[in-house]
């Protein structure tokens, strides 16, 4: 029943992702001529296929774990998004690490040092940092307000005492859920950092492909950051909604709980939007189109007329 109620929202989200992905792809496609940058075109195609496959598996993991009760408990559902994000990052890492430059008899290399700092897209770095900081703050607040439930299990309930009567509200994202989520997120962040280093160190196939190569590296690092953002947002939305419901249900609680509920709801909305944008960015992939006549670039000489 709950899945039927969720279906329209899932469809709207899918449409939104498709529209944003289409808009982004139009701006990010590089056009190369036939037999130009062959190795990088192959790498881009392979990366796109692998990434889409990893995304499909990640979506299945996110749906199957809570629906089928895999993993032995509700903690598994809580860490499923972080695990899915880690899976996507691992696939990107594998794709980059297995790239080998062609062993031709003549080889060239640009004499420009590659630094990780030059390749990281600042916008996505800030966005990912904001999403992770939001997740850390949410888990911290949840742990701070959390208390044992009726069975005495710590960090699973919100307890409010009103006129001598104790009200306990479950579930609550306290330490019981917060610790595994924090651990899973820390693992995915560590893997993401390692993947970014692998991307920066990947050999470049030829000096003449330097511009396209740098573009593909930037896209790969952006995809890593988008995976982290998506994992953090997919964790944040349900956690903040549960937190908002828990704080709002405490009728006799002090005013701070109402503020916490409102902030949690706003945060859940922002995380949903951010997660959608990150998913759209991931779906676009490295756009490299092979065309027999690449369109003229800004600054190119005119294709007609006689030079004077």
């Amino acid at each position: 029943m709950s899945m039927v109620l969720l279906l329209p929202f899932v469809l709207i989200l899918a449409m939104l992702v498709t529209v944003v992905a289409t808009l982004l792809t139009g701006h990010r496609t590089s056009v190369v001529g036939i037999n130009e940058h062959v190795d990088l075109v192959r790498l881009a195609r392979r990366a796109r296929i692998w990434l889409l496959a990893a995304l499909a598996v990640a979506v299945l993991v996110c749906l199957a774990v809570p629906l089928l009760g895999l993993g032995g408990g509700d903690t598994a559902s809580a860490i499923a998004p972080a695990f899915a994000g880690t899976l996507v990052v691992a696939v990107i890492c594998l794709g980059e690490a297995t790239f080998r430059r062609p062993m031709t008899l003549t080889r060239s290399a640009a004499l420009h040092p590659r630094r990780l700092g030059d390749l990281v897209p600042r916008g996505w770095l800030m966005t990912t940092a904001a999403a992770l900081a939001g997740l850390a703050a949410t888990l911290g607040i949840g742990t701070l307000y959390g208390s044992p439930d009726d069975l005495g299990r710590a960090g699973r309930a919100l307890t409010v005492v009103c006129d001598g009567v104790t009200h306990t509200r479950t579930p609550w994202p306290g330490s019981y859920y917060g610790a595994p989520i924090a651990l899973a997120t820390a693992v995915s962040v560590a893997l993401a950092v390692a993947t970014c280093v692998v991307i920066a160190r990947r050999p470049s196939p030829a000096a003449e492909s330097a511009a396209l190569d740098t573009g593909l590296r930037r896209w790969s690092i952006a995809a890593v950051l988008q995976s982290l953002t998506l994992g953090a947002c997919l964790t944040l939305v349900p956690v903040l909604l549960i937190m908002a419901m828990g704080a709002r249900s405490a009728d006799c609680a002090p005013g701070g709980y109402g503020l916490l509920a409102t902030v949690s709801l706003i945060g859940a909305g922002m995380a949903a939007v951010l997660g959608t944008v990150a998913l759209a960015g991931l779906c676009t992939g490295p756009g490299v189109r092979v065309d027999d006549v690449p369109p003229p670039q800004r600054g190119d000489t005119a294709p007609v007329g006689v030079p004077l």
Binding site: R107, A207, A210
Partner: peptide, 11 residues
């Protein structure tokens, strides 16, 4: 294009 180094293994 920036400066580059080329090696020829036949050389």
């Amino acid at each position: 294009m920036s400066v580059a180094v080329t090696i020829d293994l036949v050389d």
